[in-house]
Design a protein around this nucleic acid. Structure first.
Lengths: 234, 234
DNA sequence: CGACGGGTTGACGGTTGTCAAACCTTGTGG
DNA sequence: CCACAAGGTTTGACAACCGTCAACCCGTCG
């Protein structure tokens, strides 16, 4: 238990704890555990009992689902101060996804038992959880619809736009993504193969829309991608 | 408000109200509104303010999302005693989908304002809501992964299996679906076109797996569909 | 240096979407 | 009762899209 650590201002920004008074936040912080996790390790695997809720403090994590045939799908990249494994708020389930830490990171976590106590003391948390989950549902439904109706090129454009709006860094020219992102990762986020991603990215590079390096992508013209994502055909 | 209506036993089975004592259920029932809705009308449209939570008492409803290009995707068919528009539990949002009533039905509903009061009185509802939403997220994520990794034939098999497990009726030979279900509907549930659905269904009919009539499908061999869904290639 | 992991490119073909035409079923109105 | 319209379905031809596979390139690291 961490009781000398200063209350990080971001704690009140976490969807689950929004609107809580400061004493409650202190209480919550004192019941949290913090630890470092290194790149390529897993916070949890798909199918594990969902017994911990995590919040990323530093670093990146990716949430993926693996099919019975072994194909992997990336549902989401998580940036600092996002909740991971929100499912653990209600005990008794198992994680439907696995969470792989994409670079050296720090996380804080709460066990389901601790969360139960917090839920008792601060009923607002349950309301917040519902709101967070309903947003989560919305996002996932939108992803589904895009996957069902768009062609690969549009989906890849949407994927990149989502990434830069979530964690892109403004630059002189366009937006940069500071995460290591292989073609394979992009493929697994867009429901396609790394070959197709490679081809599309090269084509876009020739058109001056992006700069694609090894495990790196910079979006030079977000607007250009919007045009593609909407299928406005120039 | 309905205060002479007997407490329907199913009320306690609704995910949101599970575990509540009988007086609470009576209270909840008294704050509900019931009405008939006729086929092809809408409970709500995508983009409307999410101000009512519905429960289907009789009939069928489909939840769909329409893209900016006008393509439709069906996210789910709802059977009696399923919740619709669970998003309305937390006020202030807009429906991300629209709900079309697929046959003459009866629904009960609660406005967000009423729900707020219920949430105050029975905090368990918030917990239940979280649990329901997290299931919802799980389901949607699974749909997404299937759409991202499977070929049309497998997805269509999964769609049919989902439908019969949700509301199929056991029969001498296989399972019947008593809903009107066009090829177009199946296409919008599986992320494909009605032409492809038609072809696959005819092929399956020749193999004796299904019987496909106008707006009707009977699954004669669920097991056969499982084989296809898993891509076991005979 | 050689191994390795990520990336690129080309050839090929399967899966599916697109479109047009015709068919069938159902319900309606004369 | 028939004719007709409307909507669901089938089928074929065609081609676009995109996945598969093999070969190769390139930079990094031990």
């Amino acid at each position: 238990m961490a009781d000398r650590i200063a209350l990080p201002p971001q704690l009140s920004q976490i969807p689950l704890f929004q609107g809580l008074p400061e004493p409650a936040l202190t209480d919550i912080l004192q019941h949290s555990q913090a630890r470092r996790v290194e790149k390529d390790s897993f916070l949890f695997m798909q199918g594990d009992p969902a017994d911990h809720l995590y919040v990323l403090m530093e670093g990146r994590a990716k949430l993926c689902q693996v099919t019975s045939e072994g194909q992997q799908v990336i549902l989401k990249f998580a940036a600092p101060w996002e909740m991971i494994g929100g499912l653990a708020i209600v005990g008794g389930g198992i994680y439907p996804v696995c969470c792989m830490v994409a670079e050296d990171s720090r996380v804080m976590s709460w066990s389901t038992t601790v969360l139960e106590g917090l839920l008792q003391r601060y009923p607002l948390i349950a309301i917040n959880a519902t709101r967070w989950m309903s947003n989560h549902v919305k996002e996932t439904q939108q992803l589904f619809t895009q996957l069902a109706t768009e062609r690969v090129e549009q989906r890849l454009a949407h994927t990149l736009l989502r990434l830069i709006s979530q964690m892109g860094q403004e630059q002189a020219e366009g937006m940069a993504l500071d995460i290591t992102l292989t073609r394979q990762d992009l493929a697994e986020m867009s429901g396609t193969t790394l070959f197709t991603v490679s081809r599309i990215l090269n084509q876009w590079e020739k058109q001056g829309l992006v700069e694609a390096g090894r495990e790196r992508v910079r979006v030079k013209s977000p607007h250009g991608l919007v045009v593609i994502a909407r299928d406005l055909k120039l």
